[in-house]
Design a protein around this nucleic acid. Structure first.
Lengths: 246, 246
DNA sequence: AAACATTGTTTCATATAGTGAAACCATGAG
DNA sequence: CTCATGGTTTCACTATATGAAACAATGTTT
């Protein structure tokens, strides 16, 4: 079924990974496709503003921005939650992230940066593994049991810090704890010096399995602070669920 | 050149206009394409998460959100300007919009809603005509003369309120005024009861022709207020230009 | 400045891959 | 139970995307 579309989309996905890095010939080499085909597809994608070409290097185009702004998720869910998360961020003066599960990964949906926060780089639209982020672990804790097992089965664990969870048993252990506590913590498991604390967020009516978090440098996030923050998170979680009830 | 891609994209563009309204058969009728082709294209688009199907009705898919979040414009320009606009919004307690020109239209890039503002519906990603918004008029005032003339030549004026500008001469007159004053006003020219005030924003290094605005109900925007707001806008404009200088 | 390398673009013959009419299901209405 | 509607599958066909090769436009090396 429409291979042409898929091929074109493969190109776009490649550009998404590395904007402004690839030239026609690069793309041909990387994807192993024919030059003429690539050439013509790039041309049409450019015409459609799906890609943009500057000095023969390709970038994601403005059409994607236009359409991306209009997906249901953005207009109905993210934009309704945003002001609430903003309040949270202002109240505790830390960076807030919102995420959902997508293809067995954490997809970042929204972010409110605290003014003081040293910038930790996670961008809206990025995807990260479930097992090494507090957001991901929170989400895992609210998934239907069989779905969770299925996802964990397909994870290939890779350590990014010495604290990263590296096997299914440990992960499932933690998930069970999270179910009891109602929140999850990423204690430098993904990035040295970075701590996150998340609560799961399930919106039944929208079939939304997600979570949101507070994150910052480990210096600021001692045990006492974490306890306080977890309470705040749960408070705001209730506010969100109330607002998105229908 | 790759007609298949274009056809597929036509479908996506149709869905963008009316999410959750069209079924396969509708799409076939509206676009005058073959049922089988539409069927298969819809299927691949769904597979690629470009479209989402719920009860045989189509919505924009999550891939578009992912990729849309990563366009240069968003990551480099909008996200840098955002906190500044947020400050502006908080300082004057009114709704702020950011826009740029795209295909002879105003493309809304960002929005910060004031808490008190009665919701005026303009969404990020929307496009509106240049001539009936203050944002558009501001942009026109900074375009190269020939480009501006060319664009105005192609406008088909349509009145949405009795105050809407309805001919090129009047528009060019106003643009000349804007060039002198440094800001533009939309006095219920697009929507009854809605006033906007904008300043143009040209970012040389990014080849960015845009503008940003404050908007709200006409009751609040008397002459004296407008004067104050125009000063604020210009102040923030300088801040933005300074920050995006390189 | 000439020869070479590299990369984007065009041509054209070919067959693959998308197309569309028609038949087929599944569902819901009358 | 019949009909109507809308989604799905089949299959023969040819239009359409494909890819090798030639070409043009760069910039680089000698």
């Amino acid at each position: 079924m429409s291979n042409t579309i898929k091929k074109a989309f493969e190109i776009v996905k490649l550009i998404e990974k590395n904007q402004g890095k690839y030239t026609l010939t690069d793309i041909v080499k990387i994807l192993g496709i024919n030059k003429t085909t690539a050439f013509r597809n790039l041309k049409t994608l450019e015409e459609l503003n799906i890609l943009e070409r500057i000095n023969n290097l390709y970038y994601l185009g403005i059409s994607l921005f236009e359409m991306g702004s209009k997906v249901y998720l953005k207009q109905i869910i993210i934009e309704k939650i945003h002001p609430i998360l903003r309040e949270l961020s202002e109240e505790v003066n830390e960076t807030v992230n919102l995420a959902k599960i997508h293809n067995g990964m954490v997809l970042y949906l929204d972010k409110i940066e605290s003014k003081r926060s040293l910038q930790i780089q996670s961008s809206i639209g990025d995807t990260l593994p479930l097992y090494c982020t507090s957001l991901g672990k929170s989400i895992l804790s609210i998934l239907p049991e069989n779905e969770m097992r299925e996802i964990i089965k397909n994870i290939s664990f890779e350590k990014t810090t010495h604290k990263t969870i590296s096997n299914p048993k440990k992960l499932i252990e933690q998930i069970n704890e999270i179910k009891l506590k109602g929140h999850s913590i990423d204690d430098e498991e993904f990035e040295e010096g970075l701590i996150c604390i998340s609560v799961p967020l399930y919106l039944k009516h929208h079939n939304f399995y997600g979570s949101f978090s507070l994150s910052g440098p480990s210096i600021r996030f001692d045990q006492a602070t974490l306890l306080k923050l977890s309470k705040k998170l749960k408070k705001y979680k209730d506010i969100i669920i109330e607002k998105l009830k229908h």
